[in-house]
Design a protein around this nucleic acid. Structure first.
Lengths: 243, 243
DNA sequence: AATCTGAGTGAACGGCGTTAACTATCGCAA
DNA sequence: TTGCGATAGTTAACGCCGTTCACTCAGATT
């Protein structure tokens, strides 16, 4: 915990400069444009120097992906914290923040949620189940949903139906957050897959032929989901309140 | 059409050999492994020869993607045709066929539905809205859904609610299949985004931390969706009946 | 039989990730 | 203050890659 030495400060500064360069290339030129030589060029260095900081290009990209997960997660947490105490309002704000970040950062979204590159695949599989990026990510959504359940239980399929259809296959999810009720686990998964599908299709331009202004579809689907939960009386806060 | 000349036959044979080689590399080594030189090597040729058949690597990959769309579509059509006359059974079989193909062809799925590569982006945007691959693809699902609606209308949100929330933003979809009722258009989109989200998350390994046997989740979600449509009395044909 | 077209080759250019050998500089200890 | 070891950087090289260009040569056309 002592103050970092000068060497360490310079090192971390260089590391972030490298990662920033990689991200800039990702955003401006797509994933193909991310190359050690281009990053080094932008920094006024030569490519092999980067190997002092990352063992390979893949490792660098994996590090960038990790940072992006953190950035997205704290964006969503900020939206939650600015949305009052009602869990429903928090969930709405978080979903909007997720979409908003994704739509404004399509290249980054593609890196995190698109087809897994062989290199990133190792990254995703590498971290244990506990702090799988998706798990740490899901936890953010799971908490308010659990709060909501405990305050005013929402409508779900009967637990015996869930159990009959899914058996104990939700156990990984239930245990990862401390014995969540199976109804909450199911609703979490149902909501997360719908949120993901909607946003991914929009970002990946899979909806343009069918619908103008995908945001309207997003808002509509969110409203429908809330209807299904039986919390339709809840006033839907205006869109755009999440950055 | 007159019989193709010998030259033409050889040419199309070479074209398919090139595309087959590209796909083999895609499957065995991921998208990064697809290279003109590797394809040519496997064929006992040199790389520049391929330029007699495709103007660039990107164009070749786009052609492969087009073929994959066709393959997936006819797989789904085959499942529909083998599922009897009931639209519900057809839709179930088609959804299962979609998941099945995707799970057994993850690399191909990633190419079609993952993050758009700059090159493929041009391909997707290039074809007019009418025969956008996604549109031609969606049409396959739209028809049985429309049949179902006309035989035994399913439960949807009230059309005025749909209209209030979505306005006329579904018009592209409605017009692309000849004046579909707005309830059908909405249900189509809701179902397609859920199907896509579920399958994409499974193929992209975004669910492993939460659930074992994603197929069970898929079956469960499909059942829940049918429940919502109010066609729960429909017997759910056993899984695995679609190849 | 002469000609033309199309398929394929080889060499080359520039860019890429990565490795190896080497140099210079910075921070610390004697 | 001097010396030394770690550290950050260099250059050169290897083998990939997409792509272009000039060329050859067999097969179809006239």
């Amino acid at each position: 915990m002592t103050a970092p030495t000068r060497r360490e400060r310079l090192r971390t500064a260089t590391v972030t400069e490298i990662k920033d360069g990689a991200r800039r290339l990702l955003v401006t030129g797509g994933p193909e444009a991310v190359s050690l030589r281009a990053i080094a060029r932008d920094m006024g260095m030569t490519a092999p120097a980067i190997y002092r900081y990352f063992p390979s290009l893949e490792a660098l990209v994996a590090a960038v992906a990790g940072d992006l997960y953190d950035e997205l997660r704290s964006t969503i947490e900020a939206a939650r914290d600015g949305a009052g105490d009602e869990p429903v309002g928090q969930l709405i704000a978080m979903a909007r923040a997720f979409r908003n970040w994704s739509v404004t950062h399509p290249a980054e979204f593609g890196l995190l949620f698109g087809a897994p590159t062989p290199g990133l695949d190792a990254f995703v599989a590498g971290c244990g189940d506990a702090d799988h990026p998706g798990a740490r990510f899901g936890a953010v959504f799971a908490q308010p949903l659990l709060d909501l359940w405990q305050r005013t239980p929402f409508r779900t399929p009967p637990p015996e139906v869930i159990r009959q259809r899914l058996g104990d296959r939700l156990e990984p999810l239930r245990l990862s957050h401390g014995e969540i009720p199976i109804e909450v686990a199911y609703t979490f998964l149902a909501g997360w897959t719908r949120l993901y599908g909607l946003v991914a299709m929009e970002v990946f331009r899979q909806l343009t032929w069918a619908v103008t202004e995908p945001e309207a579809l997003f808002e509509s689907e969110m409203a429908m989901f809330l209807d299904e939960l039986g919390n339709s009386r809840q006033v839907l806060p205006p869109a755009g309140s999440a950055d």
